[in-house]
């Protein structure tokens, strides 16, 4: 099970991070539009479409990565007081009845939605530039599949936590500044009181 959890974490992280770089393209692309629109008075017809396609792809493909790193916000003011075992029991049930139906719908109904769009070669209705959006609608399916795989890993995490009363954390490579600083502070404190 741990092997699968690691696999899913890595898979989600790989896709999440790869698509995260769209933010650079988005900054530069929108920056370019600012230049041609306000300096040269010849705005592009596609900038608006391209910016929402990048934004939408970025957050959809980052959903599973965020899930694997516990980044989706929880109303956890009770939850955080529970033992890991209790947390895991509740999570396990809710993953099965809350999480999977919706994520499965993203894949299956999303497939239907995207396939229809491919069939008539749908382009964005926002501009006459004809920017294709069928590939963008397919992102719904891709994000659904990633979430589904990550969801199985989360279920396994719950099962292990129920057995051992301990959560298996994902390997982290980036931290919010506050988490990093708080981590350093608590380590420093531990060192001073051995």
């Amino acid at each position: 099970m741990i092997g699968f959890i690691r696999f899913a974490d890595n898979l989600s992280a790989w896709f999440g991070k790869a698509f995260a770089w769209l933010i650079i393209l988005m900054s530069v692309g929108t920056g370019y539009e600012v230049f041609v629109r306000y300096v040269l008075n010849s705005p592009t017809a596609w900038a608006l479409d391209v910016s929402f396609i990048m934004y939408g792809t970025l957050f959809m493909m980052g959903g599973a990565y965020t899930l694997s790193r516990g980044g989706h916000v929880r109303g956890d003011f009770l939850y955080r007081l529970w033992k890991p075992r209790t947390q895991a029991k509740v999570d396990l049930v809710l993953y099965l009845i809350f999480f999977f139906p919706g994520v499965t719908a993203l894949i299956l109904a999303g497939w239907k939605y995207a396939a229809r769009s491919w069939q008539y070669g749908e382009v964005s209705v926002n501009s006459p530039a004809g920017v294709p959006i069928y590939q963008f609608k397919t992102v719904i399916v891709a994000a659904g599949i990633l979430l589904f795989i990550q969801g199985i890993a989360q279920v396994m995490r719950c099962i292990i936590a129920i057995r051992t009363n301990k959560w298996i954390e994902a390997e982290e490579d980036v931290f919010e500044t506050e988490d990093l600083l708080m981590e350093q502070a608590s380590r420093a404190e531990k060192d001073s009181h051995p």
Partner: peptide, 18 residues
């Protein structure tokens, strides 16, 4: 730069999935 990019995708995903 990498940190900023990765943290951006995570926080954006958090807000937008809400």
């Amino acid at each position: 730069l990498r940190e900023s990019v990765y943290l951006t995708v995570r926080t954006t995903a958090m807000v937008c999935w809400l």
